[in-house]
Design a protein around this nucleic acid. Structure first.
Length: 499
RNA sequence: GCAUCUUUAGCUCAGCUGGCAGAGCAACUGACUCUUAAUCAGUGGGUCCGGGGUUCGAAUCCCCGAAGAUGUACCA
């Protein structure tokens, strides 16, 4: 952005400060206390006349002649400072007059109550720690009946996302969302660690991508002169680790999918996947349900959430139902028994497009997405996915058309996906080759055949359960945000057009 | 991708059927020794998202483009 009048004026102030022999960007500061520390036990700080040195950002200035008030803020809290020429001396007071809201300062003094009863730091000296040359948007607050009313809030959604640092600085409730996100993720780690899982890190740059149906981002390694893909899932690498003898592994990390963006999709997003040898689909259901309930109770402290216009209650036993039954209830169609003509007619009515080469399993899924998914408001495990669309899941023993797979739906959206993992190397090969055929037919999201993964399976992989849960959507639910951008510090934005 | 809406000062916004581009806060100058959305007096500040068109005259009407939001499609 072009230099504006404000920056010009602040640079002039910088020059004045330097002319007084003061470094506006000193390398050292010394603070004795954080602000929150001295906000408790106020009387004792005052009685003992403790020498207190605070450091923080000056967020407001009220100068009046030879005295002035300001408010400084660190990440623990905010306090008023009182600066008078009589206390700090003429020279230091001149420096204070050159300070602006937005500067970082160090304030030394003692705690006291002002004439109006405001607990404050009476300064003996002000030190500049970092001069601000671009004014912050002026957000003002007033306490009315104990509630903080904010004026001229920094509220433009686009600006909040593009300049997240200002959003965090000026809108404390948004900072809280990200603090909560951090607590949720560390609680997930503790939860998994306590269950005996080990956390691992697998490659983000992969020579082949797999573990999900999605289009990848492609990049290039110069030295090897090979194209590499940014991972779309961690599944195939975590399974290799189970082959290698680990029994319980999980990874929390970014996946990248080169697809559309909307309020529940960002091109890079955070997933937690876990695999447990000798467990199965049922074990994964219990794990996911226990984890999400635990996060709600232990981190947020409540069971009922307002999400996408619905009241979602995470307590109680979650509903478990088969996909075919749900579709039958909603539409009267028994998809696997229905004639192709009848299905085609129904799909045409519902404006569901059936891609080339797909079987009834795919059709079932399409009808499910259209007719059932939006109605699944309370947490629901949808089980018995068609095998056809589950190339990495074990088939059901009593029905070869279905797979041991579930997805968790809440408020009409997908939250988790899990299988009894396919460990038959020959079956797995056939399934991936079937995917390759779909790919040839034009499905550019079908899986690719990963020979190295298949070879690993041939060495033997124990039966196991695996699951993946979308962390961003989980954080959206638990922080009651309807847009994924509200829970990503730096959501993907189109570049602003220069010139 | 499509549809609708939005875009005006650093921030939040007003600007009617086309007629001199505005307010509050912020900034600047001055006053002020206990303020707290400090107050009082004064001053400066604009690519009205960009480009084109209609018109004597466009922030306003029309067309093209950009970004954002919402919905929809796609995306386990």
């Amino acid at each position: 952005m072009a230099e504006n009048q404000f920056i010009k004026l602040r640079k002039e102030k910088l020059a004045k400060i330097r002319a007084r022999g003061i470094d506006p960007y000193p390398s050292q500061s010394k603070r004795s206390h954080k602000i929150a520390q001295i906000l408790v036990d106020k009387e004792s700080w005052i009685e003992q006349a403790t020498q207190i040195t605070l450091a923080g950002r000056l967020v407001a200035m009220r100068r009046q002649g030879k005295i002035g008030f300001g408010n400084i803020e660190d990440d623990s809290g905010r306090i008023q400072i009182y600066v008078s020429q009589a206390e700090v001396g003429v020279e230091n007071y001149e420096l204070f007059k050159l300070c602006d809201a937005g500067d970082f300062v160090q304030a030394e003094g003692t705690a006291y109550y002002t004439q109006t009863g405001e607990y404050s730091l009476k300064c003996a000296k002000i030190t500049l720690l970092g001069k601000n040359i671009r004014p912050l948007p002026a957000v003002k607050e007033k306490k009315i009946d104990g509630k903080i009313v904010r004026y001229d809030e920094f509220a433009d959604i686009e600006l909040r996302y593009r300049k997240r640092y200002l959003d965090l600085l000026l809108n404390p409730e948004h900072r809280k969302v990200f603090e909560l996100r951090s607590r949720i993720i560390s609680a997930i780690r503790r939860f998994m660690d306590n269950k005996g899982y080990i956390e691992v890190e697998t490659p983000i740059l992969q020579p082949l991508y797999g573990g999900a149906n999605a289009r990848p981002f492609i990049t290039h390694h110069n030295t090897l002169d090979v194209d590499l893909y940014l991972r779309i899932a961690v599944e195939l690498y975590l399974k290799r680790l189970i082959v290698g003898g680990f029994e319980k592994v999980y990874e929390i990390g970014k996946n990248f999918r080169n697809e559309g963006m909307d309020r529940t999709h960002n091109p890079e997003f955070t997933m937690m996947e876990s695999y447990e040898a000798y467990s199965d689909l049922k074990g994964m259901m219990d794990l996911v349900e226990e984890l999400v309930k635990h996060l709600a109770r232990a981190v947020v402290g409540k069971d009922v959430y307002e999400y996408h216009g619905h009241q979602v209650d995470l307590s109680g036993e979650w509903h478990r139902a088969g996909m075919s039954e749900l579709v039958k209830q909603a539409t009267g169609l028994d998809v696997f028994a229905e004639s192709d003509a009848r299905l085609a007619e129904f799909c045409q009515q519902q404006e569901i497009e059936i891609p080339a080469g797909c079987g009834k399993g795919k059709v079932l899924e399409l009808i499910f997405e259209n007719s059932v998914e939006p109605t699944l408001i309370q947490p629901t495990f949808v089980c018995d996915f068609p095998k056809e669309i589950s190339p990495l899941a074990k088939a059901k023993a009593d029905n070869p058309l279905l797979a041991e797979r579930f997805e968790l739906f809440i408020a009409g959206g997908e939250f988790a996906n899990a299988f009894s993992e396919l460990n038959d190397p020959l079956d797995q090969r056939q399934r991936l080759e079937a995917q390759a055929k779909l790919r040839e037919l034009g499905d550019d999201e079908a899986n690719v055949v990963d020979e190295d993964f298949l070879e690993a399976l041939e060495y033997g992989m124990p039966p196991m359960g695996g699951q993946g849960i979308g962390i961003d959507r989980l954080v959206m639910l638990l922080t009651e945000n309807d847009s994924i951008k509200e829970v990503l510090l730096f959501p993907q934005m189109k570049p602003e057009r220069g010139e």
